[in-house]
Design a protein around this nucleic acid. Structure first.
Lengths: 354, 354
DNA sequence: TTGAAAGCGCTAACAC
DNA sequence: GTGTTAGCGCTTTCAA
């Protein structure tokens, strides 16, 4: 019996209910079901019909297929994000902020770790574009970063976090380096320090250069001399390069009573070198860091540092992205969040004229 | 002029080259282009033709549209992951391991932070399923976790990390709690401690219960007594609940010389309470943690703890997922990675009979 | 207000 | 070995 294609083709078992199932259950055409289901078009449907469709959808457990919708509308409500190193405690709060804000508007965040590898960054952003992401948040930008130009040229919405770029019309959210480093230098100056060393980070990063410039500027404002032999730059913003740079600086023999590290991990590198050489913190040398990463209050001694509102940076970045998505040609802008000083036990007045 | 639909319809500017553009450029049918482009089907195409298609694809800068492909094949090469709190330093290395392994096979990881919120976990997993993820990695599982049963019932591939579940046929990768806690207890015992306190964590989590059971077991094996007044349980695996639980334990007045904390953050809570009460670590009380989170070596004093290979847990979890994806009905299994003891400065022999 | 028809970009079954 | 055809599930003209 049966066999004729007219009297009901074999019901192939589908895993999930599709729009057509909802339509069938509500006795309307799929397009009507679509209109009823989408808040934006619901008004164009008879209220009673819409209610029937909604009920049918609930009944069959309808979940729209994002892939099909995305294919049709070329909008996926997905934002990509590139992070150089997720185990850097800087990033998790930023990611959280971005995700919390984005999810409010129904967006999903797709994360990728790039291990500071430029090729990987290019490949992953390509893959993300193939997946039709609506925008890309980059925590990986260097001061000069061709990838951003390519993305911009390809029409991808881009927002930078924790980094800025020179002469590039791209949205960015960072902490204000000048205020932050200014706070650090002035804190030390107000404690009475006059010979202040500086351990900087990667100059390829806007944070590396910006913080150094801010250090020089505030030293000047405080009427303190800038001694080049008290400045060293680490290759990366990590403990070991920080220790190496600081050891080299110490070996020069120039006297100083305090050191500003361009981030907390560099400060930790300074800790290691000072301990090794039998110098006490803060009695012999005061140390101040930057970022106030998690557990900075647990270090030995607890680290005086500059707190950056990382979570809020994430929220703001998400907001910029949402705005760019809503208004195609909103002007790009850079937002600098204001840091604050957190005084702990690694800074103190210099020893009375030893 | 023109206007006739026959002599070339208006070239609507498409942003990216599609398969049909490649096909046109290579003078073949789109399906042939598809076959040539996919390694799996390339063999069915004349080698010269395939080469021509590949060249054409390169020439027009062809990037396949994953959405369309996913819609057609119902496979997206995307794996979702739920994390309760990304700022918990436990998770970033796991995420990294998963992503590194997954990306080797062309998969993308979609991360979501759930803030320990069960409703959010349900909602997000729904949304991910709507996005047609191929599998889901959960770092959020409790010992009893209905969501897993729902997912399993819906045919979603699930792998648990850092957690296991009772009586549930689901793949899982964790550290071996019995070996780990055993290492901790035996380390203290070998130092001469006989009165050992225990600060446990959330018993809803498999890690909470498992570590406690392991503590009891190893105490017994070492021939040491279990004194219930030396055991306290924190509501969560964080500093403050750890401090509260440990303070309460201290208030009971039972004498002890060492404490095993069920994770490093609980240990940090113990640090705070001991410092507050003027007790020295390790002279008055030895403290041992669990996990060896980042910066555990920077704490004051550096924390003796149990190192869990978190990155490797991530890699293994990704591998299980890949296997499950390749072989639909591979049996689920639990993998327990072996931890190691890391001795630092928070443990020492007990003070000679005070 | 609703239905019909087309098509987003791709792949797979089936012809030839 | 290659072309034809159909359709994944959805939205969006266009007509009625």
């Amino acid at each position: 019996m049966s066999g004729a294609s007219t009297d009901g083709p074999l019901e192939r078992p589908r895993v999930r209910a599709a729009l057509r199932d909802v339509a069938a259950a509500a006795n309307v055409h799929p397009s009507t079901a679509s209109r009823a289901l989408n808040p934006g078009t619901r008004g164009r449907v008879n209220a009673a019909t819409a209610a029937r469709v909604l009920e049918a959808a609930r009944h069959v457990g309808y979940q729209p297929n994002s892939l099909a919708r995305g294919l049709r509308t070329s909008k996926t409500f997905t934002i990509g994000m590139l992070i150089p190193d997720l185990t850097n405690p800087l990033f998790p709060p930023i990611v959280k902020g971005i995700e919390d804000r984005l999810s409010q508007d129904g967006y999903t965040l797709v994360l990728a770790n790039t291990n500071y590898d430029l090729e990987r960054e290019t490949a992953i952003s390509q893959a993300m574009i193939a997946r039709q992401i609506d925008g890309l948040v980059l925590a990986t930008a260097r001061r000069s970063y061709p990838l951003v130009h390519e993305l911009l040229a390809a029409g991808v919405k881009v927002v930078l976090v924790n980094r800025t770029m020179e002469n590039t019309p791209v949205a960015a959210v960072t902490g204000d380096e000048h205020i932050g480093i200014g706070l650090a230098v002035s804190h030390l100056a107000s404690l009475g320090h006059r010979e202040i060393a500086y351990v900087g980070g990667d100059a390829d990063a806007s944070t590396g250069l910006g913080r150094y410039e801010a250090f020089v500027a505030r030293l000047h404002e405080e009427g303190l001399p800038l001694d080049p032999s008290l400045v060293a730059h680490a290759a990366h913003f990590h403990e070991e390069p920080g220790a190496a740079a600081f050891a080299e600086l110490l070996d020069r023999g120039t006297r100083f009573t305090a050191v500003v590290a361009a981030n907390d991990r560099l400060a930790l590198g300074c800790y290691d070198v000072l301990r090794e050489r039998g110098l006490r913190i803060p009695e012999d040398v005061s140390v101040i860091g930057y970022n106030d990463i998690q557990f900075a209050d647990k270090f030995s001694p607890p680290l005086t540092t500059i707190r950056i509102p990382h979570y809020q940076i994430g929220v703001k970045a998400a907001q910029l992205m949402l705005e760019a998505l809503a208004d195609g040609d909103a002007p790009s802008l850079t937002i600098r969040m204001t840091p604050t000083l957190v005084v702990r036990a690694s800074t103190a007045p210099p020893a009375p004229c030893a």
